[in-house]
Nucleic acid binder design. Structure first.
Lengths: 118, 118
DNA sequence: TCCTATATATAGACTTCCGATACATCAGGC
DNA sequence: GCCTGATGTATCGGAAGTCTATATATAGGA
């Protein structure tokens, strides 16, 4: 809470990733983990010990809500975005694009030296 | 050291930013701070208490080297990339572009809903 | 003289993320 | 029936990053 918004963004894009994955529809924890891993081709792969506390935090912040799946023996907790979460996602996504653009400008000259043929 | 490379990347792009700023040429701490703030239009603005320990860490990892400016009364410690630092910057920059591309794909549908006229 | 900008540095607190561990269900092999 | 692995959620302890606050010192302007 003491942190500025932009610091969060630098710190980790994980919140943002979770929110954007949930924007696709209601998901439970294990499914979120898989979605993220798949869509990033394994690059983003938060562990269970990271994911579940994070989901609790997001729920405490009223950005997502949850419901337990009954009926089946499987214990599944389904998460979905709240209105506040959707709003947050939009704002944060826009900020992310801005910061990314800045870093891209910094990094372009770096990577362009690399693929140069001898 | 226990962390994977991609975790670092998610955690914060700060290392990457510092290295890329130093790729422009030798700089001292305060100057690095300003360069970064300026080039990101204030979005990335690491504090002194963040920056100096970070620089020490990068130097311990032999990614940058430093020399004290003598002659003047001003105490200035000039930092520059080592060969290892340049290599690291290139590799990490490429990874950054890959991860960014994935996140962009996730976020595109989110932000495109926003500017839509009613 | 006092205040601000410049310049580097450390200490303490807070947050994030991970690895390890625990527990429960279900499917398949033997 | 038993074992193993994938599924599914959760907590704990620790490592690491970043912040705020603080300290010190020089330079320049009001």
């Amino acid at each position: 809470m003491t942190e500025t918004f932009r610091t969060e963004l630098m710190r980790g894009s994980l919140d943002l990733m979770i929110l954007s994955v949930l924007a696709e529809g209601e998901k439970y924890g294990y499914l979120i983990q898989q979605s993220l891993r798949d869509s990033s081709h394994g690059r983003a792969d938060p562990k269970a010990g990271t994911l579940y506390p994070l989901l609790q935090r997001l729920e405490n912040e009223k950005l997502i809500r949850s419901r337990w799946e009954s009926e089946t023996g499987r214990r599944r907790k389904w998460y979905s975005l709240t209105a506040k979460g959707k709003k947050k996602l939009q704002v944060q996504a826009e900020e992310w694009f801005e910061l990314t653009a800045c870093l891209e400008k910094l990094l372009k000259p770096v990577v362009q030296i690399s693929p140069k043929p001898a």
